[in-house]
């Protein structure tokens, strides 16, 4: 055996290295499996408990029912909760999408390196504020402030919750959109400037269209976050489960509503018997919520897929 080949055949040191490699591999694999198993287990319990609930309350009564009054009337129509969730998501979208995108355009196209280096971390801090703090911020500061404009506003209301959920998701929209905009090749900006475009035209006619799928996917991720948001809405939106009348947005926003997540918390913290129907309804709502966010995640992945093909 030549001295060169001796180095590469399996001897003792090489063998121990191979063994170590295999141990690492096993540890990483175990962690991977653990997280997959946990997810599967959660979905499985959600499903089985939701199914026992639906064996007692027909699924169509649940999904299409317009009255949610589990303890008093034994009525399990989820639509009031879904409508409240959609209302707050819509309200937060109105706040967060435009502000988030404009912030992203500012950061990616207008801000100097120095400004960007201050603003980006600040936005990240906004993303790191615990949601319970946002919740009390909504209840203690935002609602009273809104009361000076709308004297008829309730202590618990959808408007204040929407605004604050919106503020909470701005950094998500702005940071993902900004990534998408920064990824637009500089050569496209140069082409546009070279044709006599202003900075505003470069931003609106080149950068935003080229980054549109990334921007869209930031919307969906942020909205999924808003749909699943629990603490803010439980604290600030209240627990009045009523079906929203889309023709009367004013009263919808100014009064108390009960979104899905808040309803789950309210059931969870009341002293319902763990075997009771009301308790099981928790899982039915949970599964419905999961289905909504799951669909949104799938859509967002499809969009992101397209995004990769946007430009070469």
């Amino acid at each position: 055996m030549s001295s060169e080949t001796r180095d590469i055949v399996t001897d003792e040191t090489n063998a121990s290295r191979t063994a170590k490699e295999q141990t690492y591999r096993a540890i990483f694999l175990a962690c991977g499996i653990l997280s997959v198993l946990t997810t599967v287990a959660i979905i499985a319990t959600l499903f089985s408990d939701a199914l026992t609930f639906w064996s007692e309350v027909p699924i169509e009564d649940f999904l299409l029912g317009t009255n949610w009054s589990p303890q008093i009337e034994g009525s399990y129509g989820v639509l009031p909760l879904v409508s409240a969730t959609l209302l707050i998501t819509f309200g937060s979208a109105v706040v967060a999408l435009p502000i988030g995108v404009l912030t992203a355009i500012y950061l990616s196209e207008y801000a100097s390196d120095r400004t960007r280096s201050i603003l980006k971390p600040t936005l990240e801090i906004l993303a790191g504020v615990p949601t319970v703090v946002y919740g009390f911020f909504a209840l203690v500061y935002v609602t009273p402030a809104l009361g000076t404009i709308f004297p008829s506003i309730s202590t618990f209301n959808a408007l204040s919750a929407s605004l604050v959920v919106g503020i909470m998701i701005i950094p998500m929209v702005s940071s993902i959109s900004e990534d998408a905009m920064s990824a637009v090749p500089d050569s496209l900006r140069q082409a546009s400037y070279g044709l006599g475009a202003t900075k505003f035209e470069v931003s609106t006619t080149v950068v935003v269209p080229a980054a549109i799928s990334g921007i869209f996917s930031s919307f969906i991720l942020a909205l999924s976050r808003a749909i699943g948001e629990t603490m803010i809405v439980t604290i600030a939106a209240g627990s009045n489960a009523r079906l929203i009348d889309p023709l009367d947005p004013f009263s919808a926003f100014l009064n108390s509503v009960e979104p899905m997540t808040a309803a789950m918390i309210n059931i969870g913290k009341s002293d319902v018997d763990p075997g009771s129907l009301t308790y099981k309804s928790l899982f039915a709502i949970g599964l419905t919520l999961f289905a909504i966010t799951f669909v949104m995640n799938v859509v967002s992945n499809l969009v992101a897929e397209r995004y990769r093909e946007e430009y070469e």
């Binding site: 140069q190 082409a191 044709l195 006599g196 475009a197 035209e201 080149v206 269209p209 946007e310």
Partner: peptide, 24 residues
């Protein structure tokens, strides 16, 4: 006007590329 080293058409249609400058 300027033409660059690497072709840099916009990710738009051929027509919109040529019409781009007219529009801005």
């Amino acid at each position: 006007g300027m033409v660059f080293q690497h072709p840099n058409p916009f990710p738009k249609s051929i027509f919109d590329n040529v019409a781009y400058g007219l529009r801005v």
